[in-house]
């Protein structure tokens, strides 16, 4: 019942990562005049069959791309946004033929569902939420959690989707009286939800009852942590965090991801793995995504780095292509592909 203290992943790893672990599958360019902001994958119903499609988001347009063959993609739908720019795509597991997007300037002001009319296949938008939205996450079983407001005036809401993209059912969770930064579902416990807060706490809810079960204070050495993944095993909660505000240290370089173990009963926690950049790599985390045991990050240097959290080291580095820095990285939710994007609309799909 004790845990090894923090191991540091990726430090002397220059010779252990394998550049060939990422193989280019296909690429396409989204010809948009505005800046590329996000990419994602979604299942889309076409003539009664569900197809794995790619969604690209620019500031003023979201596009759906369907596969023509293994190498080519065709744009089939576009949704336009003239008033408020798109900030991010919000993937919702277990839904198909529906895309959620967050809109706003610096902060999220609206969440919209994008879908097509069943009759004429024309694109339509449904406003789901509006206000001072601090955090949003799509959950399994067609649900979406969002927090609106700050501190004591905060509302944490779970919305369940109806077939037409609207909201079918709403439920409130007990707010933690501190501003929520990010949410994460807990694999292994169906009704558990985690949140990270601005004062470095991890909060745990019961989604069924709305109860706030526990607050766990985590190490103050990293502020404003983002929670990417959580799973419960053998009575312990394993949490993958990233630290966008972390400063470089001489000993470890720049920490990008951290695996933390929490005992939810006692609120004790300990770091078990710190994913740092391989020697010779500089930069900090711009954005990251974690799926199962693999974590990918775009670094300020323009390179994408991938860590295997079970092996405990960096397994792939993807330097900028055609002298253009990477700006987006996402794991596909429809297969094991890595989606990598550049600001000008280039999307590259790699097999990992």
């Amino acid at each position: 019942h004790s845990i090894e203290q923090t191991d540091v992943a990726g430090l002397p790893a220059q010779d252990t990562w394998n550049p060939s672990s990422l193989q280019l599958v296909s690429k396409f360019k989204n010809p948009s005049s505005s800046c590329s902001v996000d990419v994602s994958a979604v299942w889309w119903d076409r003539a009664g069959a569900k197809e794995p499609c790619i969604v690209t988001a620019c500031e003023d347009v979201v596009s759906l791309w369907k596969p023509l063959d293994a190498l080519q993609w065709e744009k089939v739908h576009t949704w336009h946004f003239t008033e408020v720019p798109v900030l991010q795509i919000v993937p919702v597991p277990d839904v198909y033929s529906l895309i959620c997007v967050a809109l706003g300037n610096l902060e999220i002001r609206e969440i919209r569902a994008l879908l097509c009319s069943s009759g004429d296949e024309s694109e339509k938008q449904v406003l789901l939420k509006s206000g001072n939205i601090k955090a949003v996450l799509g959950l399994t079983k067609r649900r979406l959690v969002s927090s609106i407001g700050t501190f004591c005036s905060q509302q944490v809401q779970i919305m369940t989707f109806a077939e037409d993209g609207g909201s079918k059912d709403e439920q409130l969770l007990m707010p933690p009286d501190e501003t929520i930064l990010t949410f994460a579902e807990v694999q292994g416990i169906q009704d558990a939800l985690l949140g990270t807060t601005t004062v470095n706490n991890i909060v745990i809810w019961n989604l069924k009852t709305g109860q706030l079960l526990k607050k766990v204070h985590v190490d103050d050495s990293y502020q404003a942590s983002v929670c990417h993944r959580a799973y419960s095993e053998m009575g312990l909660l394993f949490v993958v965090l990233s630290h966008p505000c972390a400063k470089e240290s001489q000993a470890f370089g720049s920490p990008v991801f951290q695996l933390l173990v929490i005992n939810p009963k006692t609120a004790q926690s300990v770091g078990v793995l710190l994913c740092c950049l391989p020697q010779g790599q500089a930069g900090r985390l711009l954005e990251g995504d974690v799926k199962d045991h693999v974590a990918a990050a775009v670094l300020t240097s323009g390179t994408i780095a991938v860590w295997d959290l079970t092996l405990g080291h960096c397994t792939a580095l993807l330097p900028p292509v055609s002298n253009q820095n990477w700006s987006l990285v996402k794991w596909s939710v429809t297969d094991s592909h890595l989606l990598a994007g550049q600001k000008d609309g280039n999307i590259f799909i790699y097999r990992y």
């Binding site: 009852t209 009963k265 300990v270």
Partner: peptide
């Protein structure tokens, strides 16, 4: 090595029965 205190496999149910509704 770090001691995390007593561990319960049913932590979620136990915390749910203790927390205010």
């Amino acid at each position: 090595r770090a001691d995390l205190g007593p561990i319960s496999l049913n932590w979620f149910e136990e915390l749910s029965s203790e927390a205010p509704l």
